[in-house]
Design a binder for these strands. Structure first.
Lengths: 177, 177
DNA sequence: CACAACATGTAAGATGTTACATGATTGA
DNA sequence: TCAATCATGTAACATCTTACATGTTGTG
């Protein structure tokens, strides 16, 4: 349900075609929130069926026609209602494969585990570094980047720090045996 | 792909029936990792088709037969290979509805936003409190609980702290206007 | 000329949730 | 007797990823 409102919101400003929606969203959100065509185009189709969007075909210089989407008034209302709705949640899910594997902690080779932990820690720090670089860049071109990009990057930074701390905690707690 | 290995791992110790798998997993993982029947039973069926599990029907006192699953040797190998595999990732996803809504930050009523932020902060602190209570409990019955439960709770605590910090950062950064 | 970027889409599958459907047993 | 717990499942939907399929236009 998120892509739906991302689309509606982008079209609230002006009409756009599919390719453009993806570019714009990912440019602002960065690598933090990728959108695949395999999801985008079917969603546009569905939103059209739901009468939240209308389409017109633009024959530009290009051979391939662009399908330019606009919000219907119904679509605009739907977006505004969503934006105002206060039930939007932060979804902090901690379910992932590595965490599951800890469930079988006692069956694990402790040396393998500590090797994996080292790798995960390195990966975490690498990501953290690149996020911080991005944040610094954002700060540099002051107020130029999309404000939500800064906030998202900040969120990512805080979460990666938490991840890193957690890994170190596991390293401390689990004997190398 | 996670539930698959949760099932295989639980059956590595001994045979179990579906209901029991769910109970055992959720008891150890707590509310942090719920498993629905709508996913469990189809997955069991699929794993049987993949010949990773075998089934026998147990007619106990109950009228409803229990379907008792055991690992095949293939299943045991699959589990061990997974457990040893070092490519298991930590998946820190920061994509959720609230974060998306920040993308449309400039379209938002700032008072609504600050009200929502207050609510989210309260919800975060509530969850954090209950996680910390659980952790204290875990500490109390020393070494009695499942060790991975402690680690998962700790992870949750760190992530909720990050979430809380992030919310406060947004509150600071975005003018109330 | 080759390759990146532009532009559209479909098909299959992974991974779940929610709601429905059924019925027995146990304890208050 | 009434509710909770035990026990099994299906069906519909939701959300997203990956791989496939096709062809043009601009740039080095």
């Amino acid at each position: 349900m998120s892509l739906k409102y991302a689309i509606l919101g982008l079209l609230d400003d002006r009409s756009r075609y599919g390719y453009e929606i993806k570019q714009q969203f990912e440019q602002a959100m960065g690598e933090l929130w990728p959108v695949s065509y395999g999801q985008l185009y079917p969603t546009l189709k569905r939103l059209k069926q739901e009468k939240l969007l209308s389409v017109r075909t633009e024959q530009g210089k290009k051979a391939i026609d662009k399908h330019v989407y606009s919000l219907t008034s119904e679509g605009r209302l739907a977006f505004q209602a969503w934006l105002k709705d206060s039930s939007k949640k932060l979804q902090t899910s901690i379910k992932d494969e590595f965490s599951l594997s800890l469930f079988f902690f006692d069956k694990m080779d402790k040396q393998d585990l500590h090797r994996d932990l080292e790798d995960l820690k390195k990966a975490s720090l690498r990501k953290l570094g690149s996020v911080r670089d991005d944040l610094a860049l954002q700060q540099g071109q002051n107020g130029n980047g999309h404000p939500s990009r800064r906030l998202l990057l900040k969120k990512m930074e805080l979460y990666l720090e938490a991840e890193h701390r957690w890994i170190e905690e596991i390293q401390r707690e689990i004997p190398k045996e």
